[in-house]
């Protein structure tokens, strides 16, 4: 009877092995270069701003706080992390198929669900680390150049709370987009095209009815943002303000969303057959 019981310790060690192997690969690939570029581009601009405006000569903290909120909520969450995850997570399985190496994993004596979870965790941790470092650097440059005033804002004011919220948003975005793209890559041969439609959905989600907004990643992340952005542009005219949800609902709701996507990916992986010639 004991042989039918799942050996969780063995499965956990297998999962850890997959995560370690994969993480080593993701940090130093060509695809990672694009992710570094996406993550660090705003850091360079903010660094330039810090150099050209020492001690806040041409700016003030309130204005820069709103700009940083815009960069994190619009650039990082909507574009940088989105495309970073699109690059990395669609490559987790499609890349192995293109490079004709997926069968090595499939021939190894481990459950396919462990391969999916291991690859997902490795990808999510990699993107989270890269983007969290970038967000932290952006934050440091944005307030560092104000000198004592900036220090006061960070340590005696709401600064650290803002940083914490931004890091939580970044990590959740990496996990959320990652799960979606991982699932898409197991359905479509070229998952980038459905990814483009998903991008369109995320972009217009704010103008959709409140019920439909709950089927987007940005809806949950928006509720966690410490600074509310003032609406600008055409979409703001049609924006439907949905009932905000508390952190205690947003975060578990978000993980439920991720769990469903991963469950689907595991289910799909169980029946997947690879034909390198076809792909």
């Amino acid at each position: 009877m004991s042989t039918l019981q799942p050996d969780w310790r063995k499965r956990f060690s297998q999962l850890r092995a997959v995560v370690t192997i994969e993480m080593r690969r993701y940090f130093f690939t060509r695809q990672a270069l694009a992710i570094y570029l996406l993550a660090l581009a705003p850091v360079v601009i903010i660094g330039l701003h810090a150099i050209t405006s020492p001690l806040g000569r041409h700016c003030n903290i309130a204005e820069d706080t709103e700009i940083l909120a815009g960069i994190i909520q619009l650039f990082y969450v909507h574009l940088g992390i989105f495309f970073g995850c699109l690059i990395l997570f669609t490559w987790l399985f499609r890349g192995e198929i293109v490079q004709r190496s997926l069968h090595y994993y499939l021939l190894a004596p481990l459950r396919r669900e462990i391969i999916v979870l291991g690859k997902f965790i490795a990808g999510a941790v990699t993107t989270s680390i890269i983007f969290c470092v970038a967000v932290s650097l952006s934050f440091i440059f944005m307030y560092g150049h104000f000198g004592p005033k900036g220090q006061q804002f960070v340590f005696d004011g709401p600064g650290l709370h803002h940083l914490g919220a931004y890091l939580v948003i970044t990590v959740l975005a990496c996990f959320g987009y990652g799960a979606i793209f991982l699932a898409l890559s197991l359905i479509f041969r070229n998952p980038v095209i459905p990814g483009a439609f998903f991008f369109g959905w995320e972009t217009i989600s704010s103008v959709l009815p409140a019920t439909l907004q709950k089927f987007s990643i940005t809806f949950y992340l928006k509720n966690l943002a410490p600074v509310e952005l003032s609406g600008k542009g055409l979409l703001s005219v049609f924006t439907v303000v949905a009932q905000p949800v508390s952190e205690f609902i947003a975060i578990p709701g978000f993980f439920l969303f991720i769990g469903l996507a991963l469950y689907f990916a595991c289910w799909r992986m169980r029946t997947i057959e690879i034909s390198y010639a076809k792909d």
Binding site: A34, L38, A41, P42, I45, I46, L48, H49, T52, H58, C59, I67, G70, I71, L74, F75, H78, L79, G80, F83, L86, I87, V192, G195, A196, F199
Partner: peptide, 19 residues
């Protein structure tokens, strides 16, 4: 897709930060 959308976002960030 990245060149079209991410570059546009980067340009907008550049506008905001560097005024």
């Amino acid at each position: 897709l990245g060149i079209f959308f991410a570059l546009a976002g980067f340009g907008e960030a550049l506008n905001q930060v560097l005024r």
